[in-house]
Nucleic acid binder design. Sequence first.
DNA 1: AGCGTATCTGACGATGCGTCAGAAAGCCGT
DNA 2: ACGGCTTTCTGACGCATCGTCAGATACGCT
Lengths: 213, 213
Amino acid sequence: MARPNKTILGADGRVLGSRAESTRTKLLEATAKLLSEAGVLELRIVDITREIGSSPATFYQYFVDVDAAILALTELATLDEAPLVSHLSDPWQDGDGLQRAQAFVDAYITFWDDHSAVLRVRNLKAEEGNAAFREARSRANLVLIPSMGHMVEQAQAAGRLPAEMHPFVTATAMIAMIERLLPYRNEIARRGAPSSSMRDTLAMLVYRSLTGR
Amino acid sequence: MARPNKTILGADGRVLGSRAESTRTKLLEATAKLLSEAGVLELRIVDITREIGSSPATFYQYFVDVDAAILALTELATLDEAPLVSHLSDPWQDGDGLQRAQAFVDAYITFWDDHSAVLRVRNLKAEEGNAAFREARSRANLVLIPSMGHMVEQAQAAGRLPAEMHPFVTATAMIAMIERLLPYRNEIARRGAPSSSMRDTLAMLVYRSLTGR
DNA sequence: AGCGTATCTGACGATGCGTCAGAAAGCCGT
DNA sequence: ACGGCTTTCTGACGCATCGTCAGATACGCT
């Protein structure tokens, strides 16, 4: 699990020693595990602490509530998202544009699979109006969306995409599309589509929508 | 609130009299209200019954658990989704294709706004692997997705869209894109985009992706 | 070893869950 | 209007989790 490179604080704002830091990490790992095994609605602080052989009171030394722990996990996820920007660095031009789009989609799928449980909760809470989670999501969006928006602008300047398409909205739509489609993989497979067809279709949609080609 | 046209049963399978039916409806309304006010994680059965001046035990006469109530609400939502198919009936051709896409997006936005709290929970639980909610979502998808998939097929037959695009995946992606983008409206507005730009951009993306024009 | 601080935990009151047996309300025939 | 039957509602219970605090324990340092 990636680690943010800054001093870590407990729930009361104190600086943590190494023993404490390790406990905090274990708590986060347990939280992530239970979250992906059973979902948010079944997440119990007692279970998290049981998981690491500790007591509920310990949890509250590190996080004011479950939300704080999940929020910390979203920050870690955002760190893992950063490298994806390399797939968008130079706009998808020339002959291999579509392959680059496919590589991007693949990378995004991997990233999402690693953090889906946490990111689902982040998005839910953001959509339900929770300010901290909204903030977290906005910050995560800054990682990829500006680059994608830039691609739209270039395609518009070249006359390949209509001016009415708002670059930021288009970019956000692409991420939304990929994210939300992944949970449908089983259902799509059940309809007899080959497993690659989702990847290929998504890549095609993203490629067309961002570059206008 | 729309009502399914079939005999309604209590949690124990008994047929409900008129008094009971009215109580059940009140419970569902209260559930929907609290769900949109505070989100699933804060939803308490005690609060639902308090809302209608009743006791928790009453709730369990109608629903085996909260999930059952939310599931009932998703069925009602799906009934409201059905009329949207009229926007997709004859494929968007001729000059007014884009306007028809805009009308569809508008209608979908209205539908979503009416049921967002419930549908968010449905999608979350479906994604977390809950069988009943997966089922509900699949059934809802049958309302719009086949029509949209058909549009893709026609565009492919006419050579306007590449054959690699899987019609069902593409259609699902369009719904996913619209749904997931709506919660971003505030954020998009904060970036200074006019409120119509989301509608227009979405319509453009859907139009282009389904018709290849 | 002994001290001081950092870290952990047992125990508690408050609150929600889900169930049951019994209370209340409605209905119907007389 | 009454009795009796059925439908619907609820108070109360045992169990579980929550979040807090004071005290216990473990660690690091001299």
